[in-house]
Design a protein around this nucleic acid. Structure first.
Lengths: 217, 217
DNA sequence: ACATATATTAAACAGTTGTTTAAAACAGAT
DNA sequence: ATCTGTTTTAAACAACTGTTTAATATATGT
């Protein structure tokens, strides 16, 4: 009943997969509302009808794509937390991985947050991510560490915010910052790379205030 | 030639103003691409043709609205920097004002960054903001303070990022955070209020590392 | 009251949208 | 070659898009 391999053996990539990749690219660049089925088909080099032939409707295709993007979006973060590194290194590696990921996919945060804010359907795409997060036990571990008095007393929600704000916003604000400060794309990218270290130092410094001794004068 | 007062004296608000307000609301909620002229007209309680009668086209109306939103978006920030408060208080008040503003208009950051990333026309709406920023002399002052060795040596671009990340992202990520952490809107709003103090403390602590003496143990 | 400029409307325009249909091209098995 | 199921296409569908037109209403100045 289902296809597990491409029928068209002459092509190295099935039409279905081509459409998926085109949809991923177009959806992320333009958003679910500001792109057309024909645009996706064109990007995949195929007919419009094929899009609906494989995915029934534009909204079903979007749901599929969005779910996989949500997975990628938080996967690396959860992976780091599932490891058994000490908490400070976890956070450092977490931020560094996030910067690395966003360097390759700088427009995903805007895509995700925008869809979640404006597209009611998008909420469903979060469910598998919720599973991932729950299974990782991230938040339980953070709570335990706080009870040991090692970490600053802060709600987990706000710790999450602290980390994600300083990772994702710099990429989301690229168009704004480039114009306001009048810098080129290359210069801004250099700033982003340098910003990673500031994010690590600032977040760690705030979460573990007893770590560094800053002598007066 | 131009109207400086509403022709229709029986209404307390001119049709033109009604359309502007409706457009502001609809554009911010849905974005420039995912809303229709008829939707704006309906929200204003008027005919579609009137929208184009007063504003020529949807894109011209959007340009008008976006420009004014951009002004509000950064106005309060620039105002604080134009004052003659000491730098630490400036940053503190800046962050506090930003949280206050975003508490009232939580969806403006997503709107602005999304349009700038996806709508090529939106870039033009930034020009008046650039003037504001230049006239305020914000960045020059920050550079001066850095030369005095009072502030951590950091590029202005990254200082801007540091402040704006921790103010705006928490509001932009509200839909994501609510689902991931399973909290209600009210609970999240409480987190936002509490987060303001963390943002101030963290940013000031990082920008002025010599201020606090953190004793070991 | 009349004339004039402005404000507002319903209707129409051509182009685009997501989706469906029916026919064609293609593959593999017999 | 014929049959069978799958893949691909062109064409059509109604609904919706931004915009324009031409007619009507309203207000203002004389």
């Amino acid at each position: 009943m289902f296809n597990f391999a491409p029928r068209n053996a002459t092509m190295n990539q099935s039409a279905e997969e081509k459409i998926k990749q085109a949809a991923l690219s177009v959806f992320i660049q333009k958003g679910s509302a500001n792109c057309t089925s024909r645009e996706i088909a064109r990007e995949a080099g195929m007919n419009v009808a094929l899009v609906n032939y494989y995915f029934r409707s534009k909204s079903k295709l979007f749901a599929l794509i969005f779910e996989s993007v949500m997975q990628d979006f938080l996967k690396s973060m959860v992976q780091v937390f599932s490891s058994d590194l000490p908490i400070r290194e976890k956070i450092q590696i977490l931020i560094e991985r996030e910067f690395e990921f966003l360097g390759k996919h700088p427009d995903i945060p805007n895509f995700v947050l925008n869809e979640l804010a404006r597209n009611p359907e998008a909420i469903h795409g979060i469910i598998p991510v919720l599973q991932m997060v729950n299974e990782s036990g991230v938040f339980d571990e953070a709570k335990k560490l706080q009870e040991q008095g090692d970490m600053r007393q802060m709600d987990i929600v706000q710790i999450t915010l602290l980390i994600m704000s300083n990772c994702q916003y710099p990429f989301m604000a690229q168009p704004l910052m480039k114009v306001v400060h009048g810098v080129s794309t290359e210069t801004y990218k250099a700033h982003l790379i340098a910003h990673k270290d500031h994010a690590v130092a600032m977040v760690l410094g705030y979460l573990f205030p007893n770590d560094q001794i800053t002598p007066h004068e």
